[in-house]
Simulated assay, not measured.
Amino acid sequence: MVPSDPEHGVSTAPHRKIIHIDMDAFYASVEQRDNPGLRGKPVAVGGSAERGVVAAASYEARKFGVRSAMASVTAKRQCPDLIFVKPRFEIYKAISRQIREIFAEHTPIIEPLSLDEAYLDVTENLQGIPLARDVALRIREKIKAETGLNASAGISYNKFLAKLASDHRKPNGQYVISPEMGPAFVEALPVGKFHGIGPATAAKFNAFGIWTGLDIRNQSLTFLQENFGKSGTYYYWISRGIDERPVRANRIRKSVGAENTFSTDLSSFDALIGELRPLVDKVWRHCETIGNRGRTVTLKIKFADFEIITRSRSVSSQVAHRDDLERLATGLLEAEMPLPKQVRLLGVSLSSLQGMNDTEPQLDFGI
């Protein structure tokens, strides 16, 4: 329940001091730091000119529209001079640990989102610095001094606005959204810029004639709940600049997954495998980003009549390679062939997650 004054739509909870730290083009910046020949040039980490996807892009590459999760072929087409670099996740993890040690000098309340991004609650910070913006400045200065990398920071009274604020002055900047600024900042924001609202949800909002935060705020809670389910309540409050989610220290992600609904129902094994591989790619990118591996692979199948089945397999060792994940997911699908009905959706997830340091080099595929 959000502590609020329902008549005026304002929070009555005490204001917190939340910082969102986001490293600037983290993987690409590490590669440019370590290889002077890459500095000032468009760099894509991951993929290759022929296949795969971009895991991260330097700011020089972003000027050409290259972005993470883009197909490498598309990225190369948009930026012919793009340089592809193989990712070095052990290096990124080591730097991430170094950065988190800097965070811990200021607060124990740290919620990592990935190797390069975290929320910090500095309402009561360990160094007794009165202003959160000064805490953020010190953190960014020390990250630069110790790693040679730039970080951006957003400072606000809740997580939603802190995340928005960190994007507002990128790269290598910081921005404060005060309690007085919050509602006005949100009302001018396009719905597609709201953290947590993807392209499909933004299109749904637009179909209702809802384009900005103010448009969302003008909707009733009942309308938003009826059309957007449980997320409707969240949208109702964030459109008012209200987000009472706490910064959760030691947050553990249990699983990562991806799914896709097809434009046309499918039934052949080859067609389904063609749709399965991009899902495996996406799940594996998540695993690389959060630095975890898992032991249980689950395949989700939704048929044309909306019946859903799931099939899982656990292995004795963590899934250490992307091809192992594809092999397991493919095996689960193959075991269901021939399928009794056409398929409208496939999903793949990896669970029983643990840190990558525990990964064993080989998998036991024995029954």
Rank of each mutant, 00 (worst) to 15 (best):
P6Y: 08
H8S: 14
S11F: 03
H15Y: 09
E31C: 11
P36C: 01
R39N: 13
G40N: 05
G40L: 02
V43S: 05
A44P: 06
G46I: 03
A49W: 01
V54T: 08
S58D: 04
R62D: 06
F64S: 01
M70G: 10
T74M: 14
T74G: 11
A75P: 10
A75V: 09
A75T: 04
R77Y: 08
L82F: 10
V85A: 00
K86V: 09
P87G: 10
F89W: 11
I95R: 10
R97L: 10
R100H: 10
A104D: 11
L113F: 05
S114Q: 04
E124I: 12
N125R: 01
I129T: 06
L131A: 15
A136Q: 02
L137E: 12
R138K: 15
I139L: 01
T147I: 02
L149M: 05
S156A: 12
Y157P: 14
K159V: 03
L161V: 06
K163E: 01
L164Q: 13
L164K: 03
A165F: 00
S166E: 02
R169W: 12
K170Y: 08
P171I: 02
N172W: 10
Q174T: 03
Y175K: 13
G182P: 09
G182F: 09
P183A: 02
A184I: 15
F185C: 13
V186R: 04
L189N: 09
K193W: 14
F194N: 06
F194S: 05
I197W: 08
I197L: 00
A200E: 10
A202F: 14
F205P: 03
N206E: 11
G213N: 08
L214C: 15
R217P: 09
N218W: 06
Q219W: 00
Q225R: 14
S231A: 15
Y236P: 05
W237A: 09
I238M: 10
S239L: 10
R248V: 11
R251A: 04
I252R: 13
I252G: 12
R253N: 11
S255C: 09
V256C: 08
E259K: 04
T261Q: 09
F262L: 08
S263M: 08
F269Y: 12
A271E: 15
L279C: 07
V283Q: 01
I290N: 05
G291N: 01
T296V: 11
A304N: 15
T310M: 07
S312W: 08
R313P: 07
V315Q: 08
V315H: 12
V319N: 09
V319I: 04
H321S: 02
R322H: 07
D323W: 04
L333P: 00
E334L: 13
A335D: 06
M337W: 11
P340N: 07
P340F: 06
K341Q: 15
S349G: 10
M356A: 15
D358L: 11
D358E: 15
T359K: 00
T359V: 15
E360T: 15
P361G: 13
L363F: 01
G366Y: 05
